[in-house]
């Protein structure tokens, strides 16, 4: 009853308010990022392109992981296996690329991306076929991918050709333009932008928003959900490759960090966990925010573990404020 009433009230609301409601959160995240960036560049004695590089290096895998998680959440699911899929791609690339030529390494990377998308599609297919909640299936897949990663590489090791590492740690044109950032933007432009406003993108949102209505509208619900997980797998693969390129090694446990933080970045970036709401621009910024908070803390001389505590607390507080904001909106 109260929702119907809220609907009536919303109809008479003027457009600026509606715009603020739809995009306010994303804008807010970018403002937060800007504030943090401005503060950050005042801390080191001689802040320069090197710092920009290292921020991009730190944030790149998380940004991809956040994209992977966001796509799936928008489609109404959640992927707890993102982290361990990242580990798997990470160890696979680090184990086999180490003695490859640059060209072969790239081709192998491409192959891994296809494999990673296929892995995502496999998870999605399992969810659709079994009708088991996403959270259970992806939890199970978390075990499976992590186990496989451990089977492939028991302890951190491996590596990659120098020229491949340059993709993650180098720069384009000027030292101020980290190559990682450019690759991130490229991936966003190639894999997401063409979809967003086209029918596949609308289908993705519709399935997350109201599956029944989507089906009645003629959307292939199963197909779309599998597609979302495949796209998520692709971004997770990019995150895994980015992790090898930025860290230079493969680590079967490296992905753990991304399970929570990908979800946190997605939520912080304005993707609602109920599905159907948000985009990828916000979560990318949120990934940088999350990384930057930790960077700033460590620059300020805070112990690594304290930084983790503070970072976690901040994420919780931010999400709590978000929850409170939604409650306030629901009440009025």
């Amino acid at each position: 009853m109260s929702t119907a009433a809220a609907g009536v009230a919303a109809r008479v609301r003027p457009n600026p308010a509606r715009l603020a409601r739809r995009h306010g959160w994303t804008v807010g995240v970018y403002v937060l990022l800007l504030v943090l960036l401005l503060y950050w560049q005042t801390i080191p004695a001689n802040w320069g392109s090197f710092d920009v590089q290292s921020l991009a290096i730190d944030a790149l895998p998380l940004a991809f992981a956040a994209m992977a998680q966001s796509v799936v959440i928008i489609s109404g699911g959640i992927d707890l296996s993102v982290g361990s899929l990242i580990s798997l791609i990470n160890v696979l690339s680090a184990k086999y690329m180490i003695d490859m030529s640059f060209r072969n390494a790239l081709l192998f990377g491409l192959l891994l991306l296809v494999g990673s998308a296929a892995a995502g599609a496999f998870t999605g297919t399992l969810i659709v076929l079994s009708r088991v909640p996403d959270i259970v299936v992806t939890l199970a897949m978390l075990f499976v991918w992590a186990g496989l990663a451990l089977e492939i590489l028991q302890i951190p090791g491996g590596g990659a050709p120098q020229s491949y590492l340059q993709l993650g740690t180098g720069h384009w044109w000027s030292p101020w333009i980290p190559s990682g950032l450019m690759i991130l933007l490229l991936a966003f432009a190639i894999f997401w932008l063409p979809l967003r406003w086209a029918r596949p993108g609308l289908a993705l949102y519709s399935v997350g928003s109201n599956r029944n209505a989507a089906y009645l509208s003629g959307v292939g619900v199963a197909r779309t959900r599998i597609f979302a997980y495949a796209l998520g797998g692709l971004f997770a693969g990019l995150a895994g490759l980015a992790l090898s390129a930025t860290s230079g090694i493969g680590d079967p446990n490296a992905g753990q960090y991304y399970t929570l933080n990908s979800v946190a970045a997605a939520v912080l970036g304005g993707v609602a966990l109920v599905g159907g709401v948000g985009g990828l621009i916000g979560p990318i910024a949120a990934a940088f925010v999350v990384t930057l908070v930790k960077t700033i803390l460590i620059l300020k001389g805070v112990d690594q573990n304290w930084a983790q505590v503070i970072q976690g607390t901040l994420i919780i507080v931010v999400v709590m404020i978000g929850g409170l904001a939604i409650r306030q909106r629901a009440r009025t």
Partner: peptide
């Protein structure tokens, strides 16, 4: 781990 995953599923 892989087995656990398979069993849950």
């Amino acid at each position: 781990q892989i087995l656990y995953g398979a069993i849950i599923l």
